Computed example of a mutant assay.
Amino acid sequence: MNQAKTMANGSNSYSSNVVIDDPKLLHQKKAAIRLARPSKLQVIADFDNTLTRFWVDGCRGQSSHGLLQQENPEYNAKRDELFNYYHPIEYDPHLPIDEKTKLMEEWWRKVHDLLIEGGLTYDAIRNSVSGALIAFRDGVAELFEFLEERDIPVLIFSAGLADIIEEVLRQKLHRTFKNVKIVSNRMKFDHNGNLVSFKGKLIHSLNKNEHALDMAASLHEQLGEIDDQMIYSTSLRKRTNVLLLGDHMGDLRMSDGLDYETRISVGFLNHNIENSLDIYRKGYDIVYPDDAPMSGVVKLVSELFSPESDENLKT
């Protein structure tokens, strides 16, 4: 693509379609993270259109929330009506943020109520994921494996539904990863697999970036893992370097709740590239346009923690 030309050189160039606005600054950040070692790094990632592909088999891929089909189609239609009403509000640039935030909370609560009222079951989640048009970017499993081997935690932030994301991981990657924690809305099912309530704080599109560490700790508390919560929370506070992965300019705020020293941000620019590239490359350290695979990020983390990269990062 004309807009996706490489702006870096040497060891900073990961593919022919990578955009790096400030190679020198990126080089400095890589050197600082490498010097601090893996024990100081954590990864924060958005889910939809960041870990997953924007296009699947030539069609627009589904989101983790949008793929859900209830047994009663009447409730799918009701959720579609809410989407058609509230979605334009979410992206209205003229609406004050306080007012918009209240409306997003209203939207999410209405959707959650419909899921309960409509008798959602875990079987419906399983079947919805099985038939969904959703797929991970090539290289996501390799990235998770690399990070898991080095005990580097991955926080997946999503305004969607944690139970669906976990099912997508199981069905599409065919495994789970002990270092991957999902910070999202979590459901509570009865012994028959029927949805009865939601756990913890409501997470919507405009508050998922707030108090990142508190949300992660709260997740463990909801699951009854008090000891793990305390250990994990303490561990994250000691990890003062961040690799952030997102596909929206708002995703850059996912690390706002963390007191980090060095952050490398990677943005996936999936569409509207010509109009958005300038703002993305000024916001993100690295930009991958055109629904790129995750291979560039895999190469980045390999470079950060592979012995053969020592000399390159000294120069």
Rank of each mutant, 00 (worst) to 15 (best):
N2L: 09
S13K: 13
S15E: 04
K24T: 14
R34L: 00
I44E: 08
A45R: 10
D46F: 00
D48Y: 08
L51A: 11
G58H: 01
G61F: 01
H65L: 04
H94N: 15
L95D: 12
L103C: 06
E117V: 15
G119S: 13
G119D: 15
G119T: 13
T121W: 13
Y122N: 14
A124N: 15
I125C: 09
N127D: 14
S130W: 08
A132Q: 10
L133D: 13
A135I: 00
G139R: 06
A141P: 06
A141E: 11
E142C: 01
L143T: 04
E145C: 00
I152W: 05
S158H: 03
A159H: 02
G160R: 00
I165D: 06
I165H: 05
L173I: 10
F177K: 02
S184L: 06
N185P: 09
F189C: 12
S197T: 15
K201Q: 10
I203M: 01
H204W: 10
S205V: 14
S218Q: 09
S218E: 15
S218H: 09
H220R: 08
Q222C: 10
L223R: 11
I226E: 07
S235C: 01
G257F: 07
I264K: 03
N270M: 07
N272T: 06
N275R: 12
D278A: 15
D285T: 04
S295P: 05
V297F: 09
V298Q: 02
F305H: 01
